[in-house]
């Protein structure tokens, strides 16, 4: 394969302000310092075509073989284990993100047609799985190859095509991540992991779509599965957790009712009070009063 390299100032990239670098490199020589560990503020993705690569991502050492993919989130360190690029062939892309933070908030930018909630789900999957190495990613290899061809040929519509292929790469990574990290067999265990995530970020306004994405199922299949396993729809299950956590906080005299409502994910104290009373017959403040005085 020929060497192929596009950098920020190449005119081929003018139509793509978000693509910082795109490369396919066949490396024949070992040069010290050729891949020093650095942290960058953009997203990096590497696909191994040939050879064996020893890389450190976010302080974790991984070995990559052909068909494997590595991605590096903005702010994470990445580089060769010995600060050099090993012998072999590798394709990569550096991509600027419009918005990204460690909580999983992600916006790709105007070029992308992914919806806000799709981006949010992908962002959450990227941060939550805490895993930078994906194996058996031949489909990603095909995407890299198509992107390279579009760049080479620049036929009509190539700009749109390339953006679509980059989007597709994100979707592929997100799907593979959930599949690799959740057993496709053990629903109880998978649900337990999800439930833990929900509890950790209870104030977030979870949608069914986001929850389903974390588990790696479609919305309908996910809702059915949760209903048959727990007896509740996903959103009702979430209300269950919210009210149980609220009860615990109400029984401690030191947290304000409004804060409790928001902390456990109700959008207002009004909404909290109505839901709470419907279920328990008590308003939150009546309930608190009853439970902060000694019994007997």
């Amino acid at each position: 394969m020929n060497q192929y390299f596009l950098k920020k100032d190449c005119k081929e990239l003018h139509a793509f302000p978000h693509i910082i670098e795109f490369a396919v490199k066949k490396n024949n020589t070992i040069q010290f310092g050729s891949l020093a560990k650095t942290a960058q503020d953009f997203f990096r993705v590497y696909y191994v075509i040939d050879g064996r690569f020893d890389w450190v991502i976010d302080q974790q050492h991984h070995i990559f073989y052909p068909g494997d993919l590595a991605f590096v989130l903005p702010g994470q360190q990445f580089g060769g284990e010995r600060d050099l690029l090993d012998i072999g062939t590798v394709a990569w892309m550096h991509l600027g993100l419009q918005e990204f933070d460690s909580s999983g908030k992600l916006a790709l930018g105007k070029w992308s047609r992914l919806t806000d909630s799709e981006c949010r789900s992908i962002g959450q999957i990227l941060v939550m799985n805490n895993c930078a190495a994906l194996s058996k990613m031949k489909d990603a290899g095909a995407l890299f190859q198509s992107i390279q061809q579009e760049f080479c040929n620049q036929e009509i519509g190539y700009a749109s095509r390339i953006n679509q292929l980059v989007e597709e790469l994100f979707i592929l990574i997100a799907r593979q991540l959930t599949q690799q990290n959740t057993s496709r067999r053990d629903f109880p265990q998978t649900f337990m992991k999800l439930e833990q995530t929900l509890r950790e970020k209870l104030s977030h306004q979870w949608t069914v779509e986001e929850m389903a994405a974390l588990v790696g199922l479609g919305n309908t299949a996910f809702s059915e599965k949760v209903k048959s396993y727990t007896g509740f729809s996903p959103l009702n299950y979430l209300i269950n957790i919210r009210i149980s956590e609220a009860i615990k906080l109400l029984k401690r005299p030191d947290v304000h009712v409004t804060d409790i409502a928001l902390d456990v994910g109700f959008y207002s104290s009004q909404h909290f009070a109505t839901t709470f009373k419907k279920l328990t017959g008590y308003t939150p403040s009546e309930f608190r009063k009853k439970n902060t005085t000694p019994t007997e």
Partner: peptide, 15 residues
Amino acid sequence: QDPEQIFITLLYMLK
């Protein structure tokens, strides 16, 4: 297990 979650699950289910 969380006793409050058990209690709320019971109320919710029963209702």
